[in-house]
Design a protein around this nucleic acid. Structure first.
Lengths: 140, 140
DNA sequence: CTTATGTTTAGAATAGTTCTAATTCTCGCT
DNA sequence: AGCGAGAATTAGAACTATTCTAAACATAAG
């Protein structure tokens, strides 16, 4: 099920940071890649358990945090809801459907990101821009 | 200290929603207007207590929620940190300074907001767009 | 005045996450 | 193969921000 490329990407990134590729980290990452519906830590926990029934929730949190640190995964927050995780590495915004609660990725052209950054007064030096839409999404 | 206009704006908005202008709500709103540094509920609680020493934290949460419902105040969230409150009603983004932890308002021209919305595929109908910058802000 | 409704309050409860300290694993060395 | 050091995992306790609960209080309308 797991492709060699993504598996290698994972161990590569981990190695770059002096970390090990453990079964827990691999399965957590696979789960995110397999169903890209912005799951919460609890949801990841539930999915990972089918492969690794003895994993603990703390480990899921640890693995997710590690993947975020390695820039393989993005953490997304809406209001005060639980953090959601997203393996999409392309620059993108999130559309939060208020009816269904689902989150959709919206690709952002580099030119738009530049345009948005250009509203900043002199002296502001952004390392990241996050854009969140809320409303009613296409049925998709 | 409190201007009659903002006081009236408050009671007007509350009345529109069938709510009452209580001392607690007035003081909470005044506190937000007086120091616009995006305080947390705890910070608002501390400030309000100098005027109203017997107010409870639950009431501060209630009042803040009421003000948000009446569109007099915006709630802002960064990652998993505590919600911050902002009485700036103009369309604006937030710049979160990672060094100082401070939040700066960045006015957004309507044309930019439109431009950003225009990246949405057909069928997406946004009721709001939120933009958050992170990085190093001007000393200001 | 009295009633109905809105509001405040203290404290308990909750959700999501992080911490702690003990255990287990794995790599590099012999 | 065996051993020690550091890395990773684990269960459960602890923590933080927030919401809930139920009782007390205030107030506008009749």
């Amino acid at each position: 099920m797991r492709s060699t490329e993504t598996h290698d990407a994972l161990s590569q990134r981990l190695a770059d940071s002096g970390l090990r590729a453990t079964p827990q980290r691999e399965v957590v990452y696979d789960v995110l890649l397999k169903k890209r519906d912005h799951p919460t830590a609890d949801e990841v926990f539930a999915r990972v358990k089918t492969d690794l029934p003895s994993i603990s929730l703390a480990t899921v949190y640890n693995c997710l945090e590690t993947l975020v640190q390695c820039d393989l995964v993005r953490a997304v927050n809406f209001e005060r809801g639980p953090t959601r995780y997203c393996p999409n590495l392309r620059p993108h915004a999130h559309f939060h459907d208020e009816k269904t609660g689902r989150t959709h990725d919206i690709d952002l052209p580099p030119a738009l990101i530049e345009k948005v950054k250009s509203v900043l007064p002199a002296g502001y030096d952004p390392t990241s821009v996050e854009i969140i839409f809320r409303g009613k999404a296409a049925k998709s």
